[in-house]
Every structure is written in structure tokens, then in C-alpha cells.
């Protein structure tokens, strides 16, 4: 991966952006010049300047400090949601692919159903009837994403099962689930990782999009979508309020998209 990054400048740059972003997200409390929540009515709606590099919002809060803290609210949840999805799908997909039979059939018909229902419908139904808030948004995203992963992982398990060395180990009698997991997991990792890096970008866009619609994170959270929604009302007098949070979403999504696509072409995945 390091050699690959060295030979591919664009990949290296986007990887660097991701690392920087994660570091900034963790170190936000020490990096922020102002309190991201403390209103300062004396300096409302100020243009970007040396004191406030991204300007201030309608309560006089420093947008730079809020955007920085926003990493924790906009990017990290996407990681957590996807990690959960991958974890659940790894377990279900491996079991389904390994044992086959009735369990496999049941799981496949359930995933068929979930694949057929578009994410947008699922999200509306869940948020519509269960009410808004981040928990329901996470639930909706996980329910929209898990089926695809289970199917992919099941397919990968099937592929690995056919490999000559797996056949050999089956003949030699060491073909148990733990053995299988030990061999299969490392083999699948590049593909699953690539897929989830690509999906980080989509999950970030979805999360902040739902917050922008007012059904995800709620104010005063410095989630980027929420900040954009605030900024929309002040578009005519303080366009920077919405511009910078949106730029952050764009940059982050871009970094994950580029690194995901480069990895995909490297591993020759479809």
C-alpha cells in the first residue's frame, strides 16, 4: 500500500487528506481558537478575516472552530455505522456462505427484499414512523446498506471455498469454521476495505444530507449538514456560513471517493 501510494500521487494526496482530517477531528478541542458553542453577540455574521478565518455565524460563533468539531459529528459516525455494517455482514455473510443450506436460503431471501427496496423509501418510512433523531438515521442507513454487503461477502466466501488450497485443507480434514475464518478473512479484506472506503463517501453525504433536511442531527450540533441548513437562511448576507461546511463535506467525500476508486482499480474489482 505504501509503494502504491508512492507511485500514485493522487492516491497519496487523498490519503493524506483523510489522515489529516482524522487527526484534526481528534485534536479539535486543542486546535479550535474559540468555543464552538459559546455565542458572542458582539461579533455576529462577520466575514472571514484573520481573527475568524471562516467567519462567524448568526450567534457570533467561530465557524472554523465549529467545522473542526464537526469532523467528530459528521465523519466519525460514518466510520462507526460502516464498521457496524461490515461487522454484521462479515458474520452473516461468512456463516451463510460457509454453511449454505436453509440458513443461506433464508438470509438470501431477506437480503433480496432489502436490496429491492430503495434506500430512500426505507429511510422515509423509518424516519416517518419512528420519528427523527440520529439513532433512527443510523438505523435507516444500516438497514439500507447491510444486505448488499452480506451478498458480496457471501460471494467472496464462495470464491475462496473453490480455491485449490481450500480444497486441499478440506481433504486433509482441517476444514472447520475457525480454519475457514483464518484463511478467508485475510483474503477478503482488500475487497471489503475498498468497498467500505468508497461507501464512507456515500454515507457522509447521506448523513449530512439528512441533517440538512432537519431529520438527522439537531442544532446546536456542529454537524456540517446542520450548519449548512443554518447558512441557507443567511445566504444573502453571510454566504460563508453555508459555504465552508459544504466545502468540508465535498472535500471529505472526494478524498474517500478518490482513494476508494484508486484501490478498486488496483485490486481490479468491479
Amino acid at each position: 500500500m505504501i509503494a502504491f501510494a508512492w507511485n500514485n500521487k493522487l492516491f497519496a494526496v487523498s490519503l493524506a487528506v483523510i489522515v489529516l482530517l482524522v487527526a484534526a477531528g481528534i485534536l479539535a478541542p486543542w486546535l479550535q481558537p474559540y468555543d464552538p458553542f459559546q455565542p458572542d453577540y458582539g461579533s455576529k455574521l462577520q466575514k472571514p478575516s484573520l481573527q475568524h478565518v471562516f467567519g462567524t455565524d448568526y450567534l457570533g460563533r467561530d465557524i472554523y472552530s465549529r467545522v473542526l468539531l464537526g469532523i467528530k459529528h459528521s465523519v466519525f459516525p460514518a466510520f462507526i455505522v460502516l464498521m457496524l455494517v461490515v461487522l454484521i455482514s462479515l458474520i452473516l455473510g461468512t456463516l451463510s456462505g460457509y454453511y449454505g443450506g436453509r440458513l443461506d436460503m433464508l438470509l438470501m431471501s431477506i437480503t433480496d427484499l432489502f436490496v429491492a427496496v430503495p434506500n430512500i423509501l426505507l429511510t422515509i418510512v423509518i424516519i416517518g414512523f419512528l420519528g427523527f433523531g440520529m439513532e433512527n438515521v443510523y438505523l435507516a442507513i444500516m438497514l439500507s446498506w447491510w444486505a448488499r454487503y452480506v451478498r458480496i461477502i457471501r460471494g467472496l466466501v464462495h470464491d475462496v471455498k473453490k480455491e485449490p488450497y481450500m480444497l486441499a485443507s478440506r481433504v486433509s480434514g482441517s476444514f472447520g469454521l475457525p480454519h475457514m475464518a483464518r484463511h478467508i478473512l485475510p483474503n477478503m479484506m482488500p475487497q471489503v476495505l475498498t468497498l467500505s472506503i468508497l461507501d464512507v463517501s456515500r454515507v457522509i453525504l447521506t448523513l449530512s444530507g439528512l441533517s440538512f433536511l432537519g431529520i438527522g442531527a439537531q442544532p446546536p450540533s456542529p454537524e456540517w449538514g446542520v450548519m449548512l441548513l443554518d447558512g441557507k437562511s443567511y445566504l444573502q448576507i453571510a454566504p460563508w456560513m453555508g459555504f465552508f461546511p459544504g466545502l468540508m463535506v465535498f472535500m471529505t467525500a472526494c478524498a474517500f471517493q478518490i482513494s476508494g476508486e484508486k484501490l478498486r482499480s488496483r485490486y481490479k474489482l468491479k
Binding site: 444530507g209 449548512l228 463535506v249 465535498f250 467525500a253 474517500f256
Partner: peptide, 10 residues
């Protein structure tokens, strides 16, 4: 693929 639609619209 990476641009948020609502930001583009704004």
C-alpha cells in the same frame, strides 16, 4: 460523485 447536492444547489 462527491459533491453534496444541497451544497451545489445553494
Amino acid at each position: 460523485l462527491s459533491v453534496p447536492l444541497y451544497w451545489l444547489a445553494i
